[in-house]
């Protein structure tokens, strides 16, 4: 029997199984801010030396930002500066940035992390206040303008923060921290009207 199974596999009956994202569909709305889980997206962790950024930017179709706490967005694809040789690339348009990087010969590391991260949207006049319930960074528009991005912390979890609008943020965290982060932001949003 083992022998039979050991034969080379050919076609497989069930090509698809159900995708079950963490927290799917969860949202809360308080007076100050709305907190909602965002749909799945394609993501890569991109690492590269300075010399490779031009080639990678070209392949990705978005110019990799070189300044701390910044991001760049083009055609549904956002590159967030996380460190001097590190970017988080998020594609919400259904295209695969990993495949785009695979064609680049310049020195780099691209690792797929689409399922590692969960995105939570925080929007509303109290969005910054909700996040500041556990995040120690200055989120005023002067210090953290639209497009600003940073890895930081929320309570006892690490998050990546991207300001998408004056009153809107995208909060990314690892999958298993998403319940904690979502709950924290929900609590924060309850008190975000002041």
């Amino acid at each position: 029997m083992a022998k039979a199974a050991a034969k080379k596999t050919t076609s497989v009956a069930s090509p698809s199984v159900e995708r079950r994202p963490a927290l799917a569909g969860r949202s809360t709305a308080a007076t100050g801010a709305k907190v909602e889980v965002l749909p799945p997206a394609e993501r890569i962790s991109l690492r590269a030396p300075e010399a490779s950024t031009a080639a990678l930017s070209k392949a990705l179709g978005v110019t990799l930002p070189k300044k701390s706490k910044t991001s760049a967005t083009k055609a549904g694809r956002t590159a967030l500066w996380l460190g001097p040789d590190e970017w988080l690339v998020i594609d919400e348009a259904g295209n695969d940035p990993l495949a785009d990087c695979a064609a680049v010969s310049a020195l780099h590391s691209a690792v797929g992390i689409s399922h590692r991260n969960i995105a939570i949207g925080v929007t509303g006049a109290g969005a910054a206040a909700a996040i500041n319930s556990g995040c120690p960074q200055d989120l005023s528009l002067d210090a953290f303008p639209v497009g600003a991005a940073s890895r930081t912390i929320l309570g006892k979890a690490e998050i990546v923060l991207l300001r998408t609008a004056a009153d809107g943020f995208r909060v990314e965290c690892w999958r298993s921290f998403s319940d904690y982060v979502f709950t924290f932001l929900s609590e924060g949003s309850r008190d975000a009207a002041v």
Binding site: S68, L82, G83, P84, E86, S150, R151, T152, I153, E158
Partner: peptide
């Protein structure tokens, strides 16, 4: 001393 910007740029 050495520090790491653990939850920032990670350097």
């Amino acid at each position: 001393e050495r520090w790491r910007h653990m939850h920032g740029c990670a350097r």
